[in-house]
Amino acid sequence: MLKILDWYILKRYLFTFLMMLLLFIPIGITVNLAEKIGKILEKEVPFPAVAKYYLDFTIYFANLLFPLFLFLSVIWFTSKLANNTEITAILSSGVSFSRFLKPYMIGSTIVAGFALLLGLYLAPMASKGFNQFKYQYLKGNRKAFETQDIYRQINDNDFIYVSRFDPNAKRGFKFTLEHFDGNKLEYKISADNITYIDRDTTYRLINYTKRIFNENSEIIETTRRFDTLFSFDLEDLTPVEYIAETFQYGELNRFIEKEKKRGSSNIGRYEVVKYKKWSLPVSVYILTIIAVAVSSIKRRGGMGVNLAFGITIAMVYVFFDKVFGVMAEQSDFPPLVAVWFPNVIFGIIAIYLLYNAKR
C-alpha cells in the first residue's frame, strides 16, 4: 500500500516539476525573443547562432529560477492532493506525516542531483555561450563585449596593461608588460596589439618594443611582428562580470586560487558563484519541506491561498539570495555566509512549519 502511495506521490512530484519547467521556459524564451527580435534582425544574426543562444538561454534560465519552479510545482500538486482530501485519507490510515514526506524527499534527492549536475557542468557552458551572444549581437556596439583598461599583477614580478580586450578575436590593444626586480624596473615590453594564436599557444605582438634598463644605459629592441610565450592566460584579460560563471567547478577552484595569489578585488564575486553551486541542491530539500508543510492543509480559499502564500515565500527567498549575494560581491561581507544565510533562515522556517504541520 505504502509503496503504491510512494510511487504515486513521487511521479506527481517529478511530473509537475517537469511540466512547470516546460510551461515557464517557453514563456521566458517568447518574452526574451520579443524584446530582442529587433536587434537580431537588424544585425542579421545567423539562425544557428540564434538557436544555440536560446538553447543556452534555456539552461541559464532554468538554473537561475530553479528554486522558484520547484517550490511552485510542489505547492501546486500538494494543494490538489489536499483539496481532494487525499492527504487526509493517507494520514487517517495511520501513516505519519514524516512517512508521508518520504517520497517528497526521494524526489528532492533526484532533483538535487540534477541541480548539482546543472550547476557544476551544464550551466557554466550555457553561461559562456549566453553571454558571448549577448555581448556580440545584442549590445549596442561590439565594444560592449570588450574589457576596458585592464591592469593586472600576474606574478610577483610582472604587471600587464591592456587598454581594451576583445575575447572573440582574442586580441588586445595598447599592450604593456613591466618586469620588476624588487622596486627596480628591469624591462618593459609594449605593442600596439596582442593576439593569442590557438594553434601555437603563443601570443603575437604587432609593433613590438622592448626596453631593457641597465644601471647607466637603456637597450631598445623593436620589430614589426614578434611571437612569444607569456606566463598569463587569456582569462586574465576577459570581462570580470561573468567570467566565473563560465568555469566548471574544478576550473573555478583553480581560477580563484590564482586570483587570490594576485590579490584580485573580485574574489567575493567569484566565491559567491562557487558556493551557490552547492547551496542550490540543499535549497531543494528546504523548499520542498516548506511547500509540503504549507500546502498539505485544506484551506477555505483553496489552492489559490496556498499558491499566493507560496509565491510570497519564494519571492522573499529570492530577495534574500540576491541581496546577500550583492553584499558579498560589493563589500567585505563573507561570501560563504552570504550564500548560505538564506538556506539557514529558511531551514529554520521549514523546521517550524513542519512541526506545526505534524501537529
Rank of each mutant, 00 (worst) to 15 (best):
L177T: 03
N266I: 03
D233F: 05
P167C: 11
L354H: 14
K39G: 01
P46V: 05
G113Q: 10
I219T: 14
V45I: 08
T202Y: 07
F226I: 02
T88D: 12
F341K: 12
M327A: 15
K276S: 07
E251H: 08
K274R: 14
R204G: 08
I75T: 07
T176L: 09
L120K: 12
K188S: 10
M1N: 09
F71S: 11
T201P: 00
L22V: 10
F47W: 12
V305F: 13
Y161R: 12
A291N: 00
I297E: 09
I351N: 04
K298F: 08
V95I: 15
A191I: 07
E329K: 15
D149R: 13
F333A: 14
V284I: 14
F309G: 07
F61A: 00
E221S: 13
L81C: 08
A112F: 09
K210G: 06
F320L: 15
A191N: 06
T58D: 00
E257L: 14
V318N: 12
A357D: 04
Y137H: 12
F66N: 00
L10D: 03
G107A: 10
F346W: 08
I297M: 05
L177A: 06
L22R: 03
I90S: 02
V240T: 12
L23Y: 01
P342N: 13
F57Y: 06
R164F: 14
I220W: 06
Q148R: 12
L280Y: 02
S264E: 04
T58N: 01
K139P: 02
A112V: 08
K143P: 02
R211M: 09
G140L: 11
I110P: 02
